[in-house]
């Protein structure tokens, strides 16, 4: 399956109409409508009630839509959210295989009942008579924000084929990880690298950014967000969660290959093609040997840039009601 470009995941409280409407104008790759942490218990019912409309609004604006459910209210949250336009469900505080399977079953139930399919990438049209496959079923995203969840990450991810991406969510808050003198949040370098390793081993997208010091809970300034994204991309993350509309542009930019990256990749491909034309298996430029592997990476980087551009383009002309 070709991976979708999901550089920015903006979380907004589902009951706050103004923030949802603001999110629809941000050009986030993904908007996560929240029923969990940012919604006070007394507002959950209101948030669920507004969900269906919010999904349509966001989807029509050209972003993919996820919903973040509260594991304690999973049935009610899914019942209010599994409607046409929804792409997936973000599950926080996951610590057991049973939780993942429970979510999968409930999700499948509403999906079948209501004839809901995962929408195609933004800008493409959903065929109504498409057969149900894992590719067009709603996705799960696991936020592994506890010690237990991180330790058991491989088996939690493999608990359902619907799990397509994984993040540390608010591990910094849930696990109370605070800045060390030299900038990194305590334990986070280990947790981030472990997550990236596990995600690659299990074939799902690692989502996150290299947040540092004052970045507390995904609400950092655009400048720091850009830095966290750019560093995160180099560490292996594919996109990151955030909670403020003004972070979206920084994430999109940070997770898109820079023009410098692109010209370097083009130079590599050019040198490699030239060497091949001369019957050589590798080229040499001033900094490295360019072999099949290096050329392959350069070529994937160009593909990513094209996919990023296509995603940005599609958001300019989203299909009504798609």
């Amino acid at each position: 399956m070709k991976e979708r470009v999901r550089r920015s995941w903006l979380i907004v409280p589902a009951h706050k109409t103004d923030l949802v409407s603001q999110a629809s104008a941000t050009k986030a790759d993904v908007v996560v409508l929240d029923l969990e942490d940012t919604v006070h218990d007394t507002r959950k019912a209101e948030a669920r009630q507004k969900m269906r409309e919010a999904i349509q609004l966001i989807r029509n604006s050209g972003s993919e839509v996820f919903v973040r459910c509260d594991p304690d209210f999973l049935y009610a949250d899914l019942e209010s959210s599994v409607y046409r336009g929804l792409t997936g469900v973000l599950l926080p505080r996951i610590t057991s295989v049973e939780q993942v399977q429970d979510a999968e079953h409930t999700l499948a139930e509403f999906e079948a009942q209501r004839g809901v399919r995962k929408p195609p990438p933004v800008g493409e049209i959903l065929e109504v008579d498409e057969a149900r496959t894992i590719e067009n079923s709603l996705e799960l995203h696991l936020s592994l924000d506890t010690g237990r969840g991180n330790w058991d990450a491989p088996k939690l991810i493999q608990a359902s084929p619907r799990v397509r991406s994984v993040s540390l969510g608010r591990a910094d808050l849930t696990m109370d990880l605070r800045p060390e003198p030299e900038g990194d949040l305590h334990l986070m370098p280990y947790l981030m690298q472990r997550l990236i390793l596990v995600a690659n081993a299990t074939g799902v997208q690692p989502i996150g950014a290299w947040w540092q010091s004052a970045s507390r809970g995904l609400v950092d300034t655009p400048q720091n967000t850009y830095h966290a994204a750019a560093t995160g991309r180099k560490a292996g993350f594919k996109g990151a969660l955030c909670m403020r509309a003004n972070q979206v542009e920084a994430l999109n930019r940070g997770f898109t290959p820079s023009s410098e990256d692109l010209s370097q990749a083009q130079a590599i491909l050019h040198a490699f093609a030239t060497a091949q034309a001369r019957g050589l298996s590798r080229a040499v430029d001033h900094r490295q040997f360019i072999d099949q592997g290096i050329a392959g990476a350069a070529s994937r980087l160009l593909d990513l840039a094209v996919a990023c551009q296509a995603t940005d383009q599609a958001k300019l002309h989203p299909i009504e009601g798609a």
């Binding site: 237990r148 991180n150 003198p181 030299e182 334990l187 280990y190 690298q193």
Partner: peptide
């Protein structure tokens, strides 16, 4: 980073107390 991180994660996964020592 790895060895101390892994020990701390074990403690957290099992709900045990842990001590930390920041890098300086």
């Amino acid at each position: 980073v790895y060895s101390a991180g892994e020990c701390e994660l074990v403690a957290r996964a099992l709900g045990k107390e842990f001590s930390i020592s920041v890098h300086m």
